[in-house]
Simulated assay, not measured.
Amino acid sequence: MAGSVLALPQNIPLERIVAVALERGYTAQGEMFSAANMARLAQEVFGCQVELLSGGLDEPNRCRVLQHLISGCPLLVPYDEDYNHEPCKKRGHKAHWAVSAGLLLGVPGPTLSPDYEEDSELKGLFYPAPDKPPCLPEDPPEAIYLLSKQGKSWHYQLWDYEQLCESNLQLTELAPIRTTDGKVYVVPPGGLHAGLCGQSLLLRP
């Protein structure tokens, strides 16, 4: 999903991504409990730049994440997946990866800078102007939603930014069922708390 957002010159099949992850010892069953390994995998198979963020999606990383998304590049973020694929808090027992490909900002005030153009049909909806470098609006947003997708879902959804922040920051435990199902998983030293908690990836071409 992230590769399609990056608009790579050629499609990288899922089978190739999984094969490299298995060869490098990043996964055993398809799991990925290390953001650092996910970064290495993305760099190798996509040939892209990857920035590993730690400390969560909120400050001091919030502006960097929003600017990254507004420029059209994807964010990879681990979180706990609820029954409807949206973020929840299960202490990491439902940990999955999602890709965010855009954002919707609720900005106060009737007008924006010339860097933004109003939609021709939906008044009050603005897009970054195509001929100018995209930038964040001057007024701080009152609401932030990320256009996000998890691998098992059919459609992108709008996720509340704070809910995703909170979900990403509480990934601390491997699901008990995984410790008793008889399968082998690749878990980094320090478990999910060290491998996923508060971490995310910014991908660029």
Rank of each mutant, 00 (worst) to 15 (best):
L6H: 03
A28R: 15
V187R: 07
H193R: 15
D131R: 10
E162W: 11
L202A: 03
Y185R: 08
E15K: 15
Y161N: 07
L104V: 12
F126G: 01
W154F: 11
E59H: 13
A98W: 00
R64N: 08
V20R: 15
G92M: 05
P176L: 09
P9C: 11
A194V: 05
K183T: 07
P133A: 15
H85R: 09
F126E: 02
C197V: 05
A39R: 11
E51N: 12
Q199I: 06
S120D: 09
P74F: 03
L201I: 04
Q150S: 09
K89D: 02
T27H: 11
E31M: 05
A143C: 03
L174I: 15
K149V: 10
V20H: 14
P74M: 08
E162F: 04
L171H: 09
C73N: 12
G182Y: 09
A98R: 00
T180I: 12
L122S: 10
Y127E: 01
E23C: 11
Y26T: 06
Q29I: 05
K152T: 05
C165Q: 12
Y145H: 13
W159L: 09
V77A: 04
T111S: 10
P133R: 10
C197A: 15
L57W: 07
L169C: 07
L41V: 08
K149Y: 10
A36T: 07
T27I: 13
R178K: 10
P74A: 03
M32F: 04
G109R: 00
E117S: 08
I17R: 14
R91Y: 13
L57E: 01
Q67N: 15
N37K: 14
V50R: 06
S54P: 00
E31V: 03
Y185I: 06
E15V: 11
G56L: 09
P108T: 02
H193L: 08
A36W: 07
L122R: 11
D115M: 00
S120L: 08
Y26A: 09
E162I: 10
L146P: 11
L22G: 04
E121N: 11
Y26C: 06
V107G: 01
K90Q: 09
D160T: 03
E121G: 01
S4W: 04
P9M: 11
G30L: 09
P188R: 06
M38C: 10
Q29W: 02
P110N: 06
D82A: 14
G109L: 05
A39P: 02
P60D: 03
P87R: 01
A7E: 09
A7C: 08
L76D: 01
V5W: 05
R178A: 05
P87C: 01
S167P: 10
C63I: 06
R204K: 13
E166H: 13
S4V: 04
D131Q: 08
